[in-house]
Amino acid sequence: MVTPITPPLYPLKESPSQTAGPYVHIGLTPNFCGIPGVYANDLGTTMVGENTKGERITLEGRVIDGGGNPLKDALVEIWQADADGTYKTRAEPGFSGWGRAPADGETGIFRFETIKPGRVAFPDGRLQAPHINVWIVARGINLGLNTRIYFEDEAEANAGDPVLARIEHRDRVPTLIAKGGNGKYSHDIHLQGPQETVFFDI
């Protein structure tokens, strides 16, 4: 019997990652970084408009290294569904779903003004709890880190979330859950140590 010869599924390799380095803000948030005038605005700073449907929320946090110090050169991007649980793959007046924030140069705080996302189906049909997808790059991070942010006041939905259910060490689940309520949440991301945040291989 002759085995048919087919082209390989992956003829190319993904470009290998390299760290974003200490000056990622020059490239991705130049206005924030003291390089005005090249772009009218930094991308990803405004996610909601007057007519955006959904509960307005403020999400603040820091990325903290293994020595307990916040990163002041990090860049955080988020991607989330709208209030109905739909991902907008093209920004439209109303809601973009995508945000980008630099860590503050003094405090390391990143901040997003957005809405609480709706619930999105998992491939098996179960509903995921409201969550925000997070990608973190910085000097010293060789490949961007993927994590999620869930909400403390969605305990019932969190309890049935298929991704949170994958976490074998249940004491790590709280590392993905932002604290707060009434529209204000805070969430620190720990790169190492006893509170190390869960990162995903997505």
Partner: peptide
């Protein structure tokens, strides 16, 4: 710089949902 900025626990995999397969367009 990677010494204090590298996660040490295993990454968790769960396949892809719409959260991973969609993304912003420009």
């Amino acid at each position: 710089t990677s010494v204090l900025r590298s996660p040490s626990r295993a990454l968790i995999a769960f396949g892809n949902s719409l959260s991973e397969t969609t993304g912003p367009a420009f």
